Simulated scan of single mutants.
Amino acid sequence: MTRRGLRGVLAAAALTTVLAGCGIRSTEVPTDFGAAPSRVPCGASASGISARDRATGVPVQIFLVCSGRLVPVDRTVRVPGQAGGTDRVRIARALLTELSAAPAADEKQAGYTTEVRRGLTVTGPRSGDPGEALRLSRRPQELPTAALSQLVCTYAESAASDGGAVLLGGPAGTDPRRYECTPEVRERPGRVAPPSRPVES
C-alpha cells in the first residue's frame, strides 16, 4: 500500500470514531414521562348537557376561570315561567345559579374554576332604576375581582345584557352602574376589574 493510501485509511478510521462519539447511544433502559394528558386544558366543555336538556332548556354561555383567564362554557338552563320578575331577571338568576355551582368533574380536570360563591342573589330594578338594571345582594365592588368579571361577562353576553353591557347595583342605597366586559377583563379577570360608569339620567 502506498504512503498516500495509508494516510487515507487512517483518516477514514479517525472520522468514523469521531462521528460515533457524537451520536446518541441506544439504551435498553425504559423511560417514563408519565401518561399523556387526558384533556386539553381549557378545552370547550358541554358538561351536563343532555339531549333532554337541549330540548327543554335554553342554551347559554357562562364564563369560568381557566389558566388565569375567562373562558366561555356552554350550558343549558331552565327558566321557569313563574312570577317573580321579567324574563331578563329569571335568566339572570339561572345564570347566577350556574356560575355559583362547582364545575363538573371533567371541567375541574380541564382546569375550570369559579370565583362566584353560593349565597349571592339577584333581583330586578328598584323604584327609580332603569328597567334593565339588576340588583345583587352585595355591592358589586365588594365582590372579588374575578367573581365580578365572571358575572359581568356572563350577563353582558346574555339576554340579560343591555347592548353588550350590564347595569348592576347592590342593595338599597347604592346606585346601579353600567359595567362592560372588555378583552382585558377576559384575559386578566383577577387583576383587571370590569370598567364601569354611572348610569346617565
Rank of each mutant, 00 (worst) to 15 (best):
R186K: 15
V192G: 04
G169W: 03
L120T: 13
T121S: 14
D175Q: 14
G169F: 00
P144E: 06
T113Q: 14
R135G: 03
R118I: 14
T145V: 15
P171N: 11
E115K: 13
R177G: 09
E187T: 14
T174K: 01
R139E: 14
D162N: 14
P194V: 07
E115C: 11
V192Q: 09
E187V: 09
R188D: 14
S127W: 00
G119N: 11
D162I: 01
E157A: 15
P176D: 07
A172D: 15
P194G: 10
G131V: 13
G164W: 03
P144M: 11
T123P: 02
V152I: 08
G128E: 12
V192W: 00
C181L: 07
T145D: 06
L151E: 03
V185D: 04
Y155L: 15
E132T: 14
A110R: 04
E180C: 06
R118K: 14
A110Y: 04
R139L: 11
Q109G: 14
G169D: 02
P183W: 05
R135Q: 03
E187D: 15
V122N: 07
A165P: 02
L151Y: 01
P130K: 04
A160L: 03
V185P: 01
T174V: 09
R191V: 14
R138E: 15
A172S: 15
L148R: 04
R135Y: 01
P140L: 09
S137F: 03
L134D: 00
G111H: 07
G169A: 09
Q141R: 14
S158R: 05
E115Q: 15
S137N: 12
D129A: 09
R139P: 04
L136E: 01
T121H: 06
E142P: 00
G119K: 08
A159F: 06
V116C: 09
G164Q: 06
P176S: 09
L134R: 00
G128Q: 10
C181K: 02
P125Q: 12
P125L: 09
D129K: 05
R139H: 11
P140V: 08
T123Q: 13
T123K: 12
V152W: 00
P183D: 12
R126L: 14
T113L: 12
V185L: 10
A193V: 11
R178F: 04
P144V: 10
E187W: 01
A146T: 13
G164I: 09
G169Y: 02
S161Y: 02
S149Y: 01
V192D: 08
G163P: 04
G111V: 08
E184I: 03
E142W: 08
G190L: 03
S158D: 11
